[in-house]
Design a protein around this nucleic acid. Structure first.
Lengths: 233, 233
DNA sequence: TAGTGGTCTAGACCACTAT
DNA sequence: TAGTGGTCTAGACCACTAA
């Protein structure tokens, strides 16, 4: 019982991580099993388990039943990004938010949108194009396809004062989704909307959300230059 | 005791999330406390606690002692990104990996690098510029500043067969770090190195890592066009 | 088949905070 | 001050998997 560690699972985690950082346990090494560690730390196995699960979630160790726990050979860093609604993101920076809906129409699905939503090409989808502003300056251009089949009746015409973005987040809790980040040169139209030179490098996110097996929406957001996502590791 | 839910905390989580999705509990609503839910589900409070902690981590609910648990008003989606070593990322796509070190020299820290690493401007830092290839094509250009003060003696000249990227991940476990994602137009030099037109939109990551209070390295990676990060929500 | 992690339980005490 | 979440415990059984 070397380390009293009377601060609970977080101090157990800290001690274990410290041993990895100090290379007492090197990448690839097995570390003692939960029961032995619990004895060493003078705590219950569940406490060690919690610490080790957290380290595994962070990519520091790999765990397999019967094989035990090993220090990750080539640690995969995991970063958690918070993706707030645009309004919240803008206002969190102390700037004022507003948005302008550029267009709203039922259109036959473009091939790309159809593929992302898993509907037949040409299926009738609601398309919304919206410009978001921070302190009056263009912040992001949103091009969204919505599947009317999964929206409550009337929703397509009534988001109230909310952007489609925020309305969906509040009203269509979803069970699945994916998101991608990439960079793209501004096309002529995007450049004009965002007030930048054609060809400017834009940060782009593409998101698709589903509920059960039904696609709800696919959206592409192009952010004005200078936008960055930041997080801790 | 409505729901037997004999599959453990994950089924409790699923049922709770289902009630949120079906708007039985609406955004802003309080939900029953852990003890009541445990009674309803016929399980221990710890099991409900685990499910609710997971939902809180996912941004679905907000919890405060005494105030209880509420459905998040404007859910903040959280996405977890895996950030592997470049070699692993390339090879995971079935492509061959190699890298070429373009330069390695002690240089006075540029203002930007000095600020990111928290050292005096002009301090002597090791600068490494590396080009990474996937299937022989340029994949990413790396511009890295290293703090020699925190490297083991000789490390600056001996990474073996590993890229600095991978050597650091394996040998310098760090306690803190941050990462940012943005987009930038390729400058003349970058364009030449990556084999793209000047001005092409590049996906850029900037990472700084620390051990205790000492900065280890600051690195900027510019990825060839077409690169994207993808994850589930 | 045996060792290890994954999880559950019933109870307990503590920490925070709304009232 | 009292209600709620946060965590710990000691023990138990289960699930997976390496040998």
């Amino acid at each position: 019982m070397i380390a009293p560690a009377r601060n609970g699972w977080e101090s157990v985690r800290a001690e274990l991580l410290g041993r990895i950082a100090r290379r007492i346990w090197k990448p690839g090494d097995s570390i003692p099993n939960e029961e032995d560690l619990a004895y060493e730390f003078g705590c219950a196995r569940a406490t060690v388990n919690r610490a080790l699960r957290d380290l595994a979630a962070g990519g520091y160790v790999e765990r397999r039943r019967k094989a035990g726990t090993r220090v990750a050979l080539t640690p995969v860093r995991r970063a958690t990004l918070s993706i707030p609604v645009l309004r919240v993101e803008v206002e969190a920076g102390g700037r004022s938010y507003r948005f302008a809906e550029l267009s709203r129409a039922i259109e036959p699905a473009a091939d790309l949108a159809a593929a992302r939503l898993g509907v037949a090409a040409g299926a009738a989808l609601l398309r919304l194009r919206t410009l978001h502003f921070a302190d009056g300056a263009p912040f992001a251009f949103e091009d969204r396809w919505l599947n009317p089949a999964v929206l409550p009746d009337g929703a397509a015409t009534e988001f109230g004062d909310l952007s489609a973005n925020e309305w969906l987040v509040r009203n269509m809790a979803f069970s699945q989704g994916d998101i991608a980040f990439t960079a793209a040169n501004a096309g002529a139209e995007e450049a004009g909307l965002l007030g930048v030179a054609p060809g400017a490098a834009l940060f782009v996110t593409e998101r698709t959300t589903w509920r059960q097996d039904q696609a709800i929406t696919a959206v592409r957001l192009a952010f004005a230059p200078g936008y960055r996502i930041h997080t801790n590791l």
